[in-house]
Write a protein that binds this DNA or RNA. Sequence first.
DNA 1: GTTGCATATGCGCCCAGTTGCATATAGTCT
DNA 2: AGACTATATGCAACTGGGCGCATATGCAAC
Lengths: 179, 179
Amino acid sequence: MALEHAILVSLGERAASGYDLARRFDASIGFFWPASHQQIYRVLARMQESGWVSSTVESQAGKPDKKVYAITESGEVELDRWAAEPTDREALRSDFAVKLRGFRDRDAIIADAVARKTAHEQRLKQYEESQARFYPAPAALTGKELGSWLALRGGIGAELQGIAWCEEILTHLEGRGSR
Amino acid sequence: MALEHAILVSLGERAASGYDLARRFDASIGFFWPASHQQIYRVLARMQESGWVSSTVESQAGKPDKKVYAITESGEVELDRWAAEPTDREALRSDFAVKLRGFRDRDAIIADAVARKTAHEQRLKQYEESQARFYPAPAALTGKELGSWLALRGGIGAELQGIAWCEEILTHLEGRGSR
DNA sequence: GTTGCATATGCGCCCAGTTGCATATAGTCT
DNA sequence: AGACTATATGCAACTGGGCGCATATGCAAC
């Protein structure tokens, strides 16, 4: 399970409450490992039991109290252990490809391809904005920042590929024989 | 849930036993929706209860009996209903990207990138063999076969993108500053 | 004054995919 | 005779993510 490790990576960058983490997951690390706040809270509790994180409650003026989590030494050890272990390749798993394969409804496929292309473009835009803001000079990057930038490069590549696939589909389906 | 629909698509092409389906999932439709035989048997039982498939037991010489499933009319209706419904975009979810983002162990990342590149290349080879065997003349394809080919095109594109990403990672990591 | 929003934390159930195990037939290989 | 492989079907337990729902503070807008 990688949510634990995604959280450890994020907490390693900076301590945070569950709420903060949920926002980070919406905006950055969640590009690569999406998670809802419910899930994050549940996993944080389990991680604290394992001793990977510790928490302190902080009072805030004008806002509810928050529980700020920080990575512990044991968490660092776990993160290193995980980092050394090979990751296994994520399998492709696509409803849309199955639908293409079945090819029951040409118009629905075209509509899907159009919608998916738009979604890919939006996500691509997010990635590119992130790239421009945080990594304006990629050639100079080292260590952690180089890694983050390369992760983003993977996201950008995946979106470009998704867009190209949608375009290929539309080229071949529009104006050709129906079912 | 799309396993049901992947099975319906496959049974729509040709009736099959659970065992046959498991092999098809290993070799073709499972490129887009991997499934184990256990899962396939479980889902087939549920689908029969729903009336989407029917089964007949066939005796075989020298082999155990097999239960051959076929799609029913109600299954066809369900498949059409599903085909008309929009699919939602699969989210990117990558251990490896999280690991890159964390950047704890440069050597492990390089080793991963090398291994993943090889895995992508193998999968790509499978796709390309499939493409050469079944779709030698893509321009002439129509209907169902065009759809299947386009699904395969998506797979090929994804693997090429995966390979390119690994290469980009290796270019930037090899011979540069360590952690 | 109440509606809505941002902040903040969580419970409970379900669903689907993963893993391990079990069992049976029949042929081949050593 | 025993081991291994291919064919064939399945159950049980676990795991992790998804979805709905609940609750509380405090500010701003209407």
